[in-house]
Design a protein around this nucleic acid. Structure first.
Length: 283
DNA sequence: AAGTCTCACAACCGCTCCCCA
DNA sequence: CTGGGGAGCGGTTGTGAGACT
């Protein structure tokens, strides 16, 4: 049996998006918002499936995306969150405003995994690799040394409690990572990360409140954008796209929108957001 | 300079979840 | 309660750019 494909793939384009396609998608979403992803490609005149459009928008075209590399602090927070949440990338991404789950997943797989392995930490379990192997050996060994004669359960607990991750995550403030099995500690780490997330969230609010695309475009040398600044903020999101589309439609001069979309070539790198992203760090 | 390798990231695929009739 | 459809999620693959030989 199996589920029917999400869309009729016949005649649909695949692979990398062209600038023209990006233009069309952005133009459509900014003008109409998102009601049904399945209808988006048809209405926008794209030969793509709805899923592809959704992915492209979320991972690349969304104006509130924060581009650029991850800082060490972000990486450490990512490791902490991963130890609590596992591979739930969207949950992890929700703690990093402007970052996508795909971005975080890629970063984890390409950078952090290696970093952890290099440090002798299993990126899956967040436990020291040697100790884990040691425990496996203990299970098979009949004669055990007195200092490791405790049961494998105890060994596990011990390994959790002495994870290298704790050392790894110890930051300048003395904050440390917590072993998974310790319920109290886990609660603490969740609170910690929630607090962190709140801090970031607050920063983001400040960031969004003080930033708008009009300003951005002025900084980018984009003409005739002062009238846009009140209606188009970087807090624009898919969720409020309906409202956004209304306000944009009502307040944004059409030629401004068109000019903005036309200027997408320079905008696509979102260097401007990088600049503000750096500023964000000083808030 | 050309070929090969490695790496990072964009995009796809298939599954699950959730909502609604 | 149930089945269908759309959205979201996580794993995997493809691709292009840079490094290396």
């Amino acid at each position: 049996m199996g589920r029917l494909p999400c869309c009729d793939k016949v005649g649909l384009k695949r692979g990398p998006w062209t600038i023209e396609e990006d233009h069309k998608l952005m133009n459509f979403i900014l003008n109409n918002g998102i009601h049904c992803w399945r209808m988006v490609p048809k209405l926008a005149g794209l030969l793509r499936c709805g899923k592809s459009c959704r992915l492209r928008w979320i991972n690349y075209l969304r104006p509130d995306l924060k581009r650029g590399g991850f800082t060490e602090a972000e990486e450490n927070q990512m490791i902490q969150l991963h130890s609590c949440l596992g591979n739930r990338w969207s949950k992890i991404a929700s703690h990093f405003p402007g970052r996508t789950d795909n971005e975080i997943k890629n970063h984890w797989n390409t950078r952090i995994k290696k970093r952890l392995k290099h440090l002798g930490v299993d990126p899956l379990t967040h436990k020291p690799i040697e100790e884990k192997e040691h425990i496996e050996e203990n299970k098979d060994t009949i004669t055990q040394q007195s200092n490791i004669t405790s049961s494998s359960e105890e060994g596990l607990e011990e390994s959790r409690g002495t994870g290298l991750e704790a050392k790894l995550l110890e930051d300048s403030n003395g904050n440390k990572g917590f072993p998974e099995s310790d319920e109290k500690s886990q609660n603490e780490v969740q609170l910690t990360t929630l607090d962190d997330a709140n801090d970031i969230s607050e920063n983001y609010e400040v960031f969004c409140g003080s930033l708008d695309l009009g300003t951005l475009m002025l900084n980018q040398g984009f003409p005739n954008t002062s009238s846009m600044s009140n209606s188009y903020s970087t807090s624009f999101s898919v969720e409020d796209s309906n409202n956004a589309s209304i306000s944009i439609g009502e307040t944004m001069q059409e030629n401004c929108l068109q000019q903005w979309v036309d200027s997408v070539d320079s905008m696509l790198s979102w260097d401007g957001f990088n600049i503000f992203g750096q500023d964000l760090f000083f808030f």
